[in-house]
Structure formats: C-alpha cells, structure tokens
Amino acid sequence: MTAHLYKAMREFVQSMDDALPGKFEITREGIVHDLTAPSGPHELTRARLRRRLEKVMPEDLVAHTGTPDVEDVPEGIMRHPDVMLIAEADMEGDGSFDPCALIAAIEVVSRSNPDNDWVSKVRDYPLLGIPLYVIFDPRTGSGAVLSDIHQTPNGPRYATRKDFVYGEDVTIADWTISTEGLPRYSEG
C-alpha cells in the first residue's frame, strides 16, 4: 500500500468516525467497517475484563478500553483493540499508540464480523509487533491466547496458541484472571 493511499484511507476513517455507526479500521486489504454497534454482552465482557485485569496488574499499567487506536503507518495498518494492556507512560502524547508499546491486545469477537478478530487480526497483530493477542468469543464461550511471534515466509505469525473455555482461568502476560461469568451472545 502506498503512503498516499494509506493517508487517504486514514482521512476517510477519521471523517466517518462520528458520522456512521460501527467501528472503522485499516488493514493491508483496505478499510474494515464493522457496521453493528457493540452489543451489551460485548461491552459487558470488555468492562469485566478491564476490571479483572486492573485488580491484578501493577498500578502503572492500564487495561485501556478507549481511544486512540494503534497504528503502523509504514505497514498501512490501523487497529482499535477492545482492550489494550499498556503502561500509563506509553499513553502520554497525542495521536495513535505505538503498537510495540502494547503488552497485549484483547478482542471480544463481534457477532457481525468474527473473521475480523479470528483471521485478520491474527495476521495483523504480529505484523504490528504486539507480543500477545487474546481473543474472547461470546458466540462459543471460548477463546485463545496467541503469543511467541516468529518469522514465516508469509510474514510474522504467532507460534503458540492456548485455547480456553469460559469458566477457566486464563493467563494474559503475567496475570491470571477468571473467565467465570463472562456473558454469551443469545441465539438469534
């Protein structure tokens, strides 16, 4: 992707953020637009994960659920993880967060676009240098912790995947939290 094309996509995304519902991100393939606003179970999962992580992490670290996004302009990628584990000091300044500053990116799978979390971000997050990617899937009540970035002929990928089911404890970096009571999407 050329710098000019990325800049045009970035300007479009910024102009649409408040104009259209949903969330915009940029990948090497172009703009991803999750049309549906996050549901109650999605947002409740984010809130519970944030509180549980911040209870066990040192005070200088944050389980951040707001803006800004993480961005690597040379790679042409801008993502907005549901929860970002990051040091407070790395949040200072203006603009996007440096993806290499993240300890982990955590996603709650969207009901409307699960491939964005299970396929595209599994590809993009190691490319951005995010050492740990954790997926919580309210559709299935399960998830995975992806780690150990290594080089492949198709670019950097996570080498290790540890699956879990809701109800089990999950270890994210140095901290273990419960997945008990995380909501599921209802049928339909």
Results as ranks from 00 to 15, higher is better:
residue 17 D to V: 06
residue 132 L to K: 14
residue 23 K to N: 04
residue 140 T to Y: 05
residue 147 S to I: 02
residue 95 G to T: 07
residue 152 T to M: 02
residue 51 R to W: 13
residue 179 T to A: 10
residue 79 R to M: 08
residue 175 W to K: 13
residue 98 D to R: 03
residue 165 V to Q: 06
residue 139 R to L: 10
residue 172 I to Q: 15
residue 185 Y to F: 11
residue 62 V to R: 12
residue 103 I to H: 14
residue 35 L to Q: 11
residue 152 T to G: 04
residue 27 T to W: 05
residue 36 T to G: 09
residue 40 G to K: 09
residue 9 M to A: 10
residue 122 V to L: 10
residue 156 P to A: 06
residue 61 L to A: 11
residue 125 Y to G: 15
residue 109 V to Q: 09
residue 104 A to K: 13
residue 67 T to L: 12
residue 31 I to R: 06
residue 121 K to E: 03
residue 20 L to P: 06
residue 106 I to F: 11
residue 145 V to M: 03
residue 36 T to S: 15
residue 134 V to E: 05
residue 107 E to M: 10
residue 112 S to Q: 11
residue 41 P to K: 03
residue 58 P to Q: 11
residue 9 M to I: 02
residue 28 R to C: 05
residue 92 E to G: 04
residue 37 A to I: 00
residue 33 H to C: 02
residue 177 I to R: 11
residue 48 R to T: 02
residue 138 P to R: 13
residue 151 Q to W: 09
residue 130 I to E: 13
residue 145 V to A: 14
residue 102 L to V: 13
residue 4 H to C: 02
residue 168 E to I: 07
residue 28 R to A: 06
residue 77 I to P: 00
residue 169 D to W: 04
residue 82 D to I: 04
residue 110 S to D: 06
residue 87 A to P: 10
residue 90 D to S: 14
residue 115 D to S: 11
residue 9 M to R: 15
residue 64 H to T: 09
residue 110 S to E: 07
residue 70 V to Q: 00
residue 12 F to L: 09
residue 127 L to Q: 11
residue 25 E to R: 10
residue 178 S to V: 05
residue 66 G to C: 04
residue 76 G to P: 09
residue 100 C to A: 10
residue 37 A to N: 07
residue 2 T to G: 14
residue 43 E to D: 15
residue 111 R to F: 00
residue 168 E to L: 12
residue 85 L to E: 15
residue 13 V to K: 01
